[in-house]
Design a protein around this nucleic acid. Structure first.
Length: 152
DNA sequence: GCCAACGTTGGC
DNA sequence: GCCAACGTTGGC
């Protein structure tokens, strides 16, 4: 079973929203590398829920893949911020998955803390200039971040 | 709001 | 298929 990290701006949709809703569709990924990661997700895979453009930015909790990739309908919705006029009608361009709530950390594991932690060396989200909104995480990095997030 | 990083597009 | 221009992400 794989481990992932996915970014969302908490002003738009944060871990509190996921806790309230219990599950959500992860729409709006418009980057091919990130899309390919979405398509590789399997039911039951765990996902670090990362708050971007936040104070502080960092990992706020954990979600779980509850349904695998299918065409993201927002690519066809002209009223959506994610509308893509170049998307072919077969839906092959952009995908979404459904993510369920697992846990909200007792504290956000801030990006600065991730970058400073030698046990998290090499993690994609700490790479300089990393803009991937969905990426893989090693089991060891995943477990370490969860342990940090559960600290009070 | 600035700006670095970098993915994507399109001209050639 | 190279590469410059452009747009976007996202930390700070």
């Amino acid at each position: 079973m794989a481990r992932w990290l996915a970014k969302s701006e908490p002003d738009v949709y944060g871990i509190d929203d996921l806790e309230r809703d219990n599950s959500t569709t992860w729409e709006g990924v418009r980057n091919f590398t990130a899309r390919n990661f979405l398509r590789a997700m399997q039911v039951g895979d765990l996902v670090l829920f990362y708050h971007s453009n936040a104070v502080p930015s960092g990992v706020a909790g954990v979600g779980r893949v509850v349904s695998t990739a299918s065409p993201d309908p927002t690519q066809f919705d002209q009223a959506s911020d994610y509308y893509d006029e170049t998307a072919p009608p077969d839906g092959s361009r952009w995908s979404w998955v459904t993510v369920g709530f697992v846990e909200r950390f007792s504290r956000v594991v801030a990006l600065a803390e991730i970058k400073a932690d030698p046990q998290l060396e090499g993690i994609e989200v700490a790479r300089k200039g990393s803009r991937l909104s969905v990426c893989g995480v090693s089991d060891a990095h995943f477990d370490h971040i969860v342990a940090l997030g559960r600290q009070s």
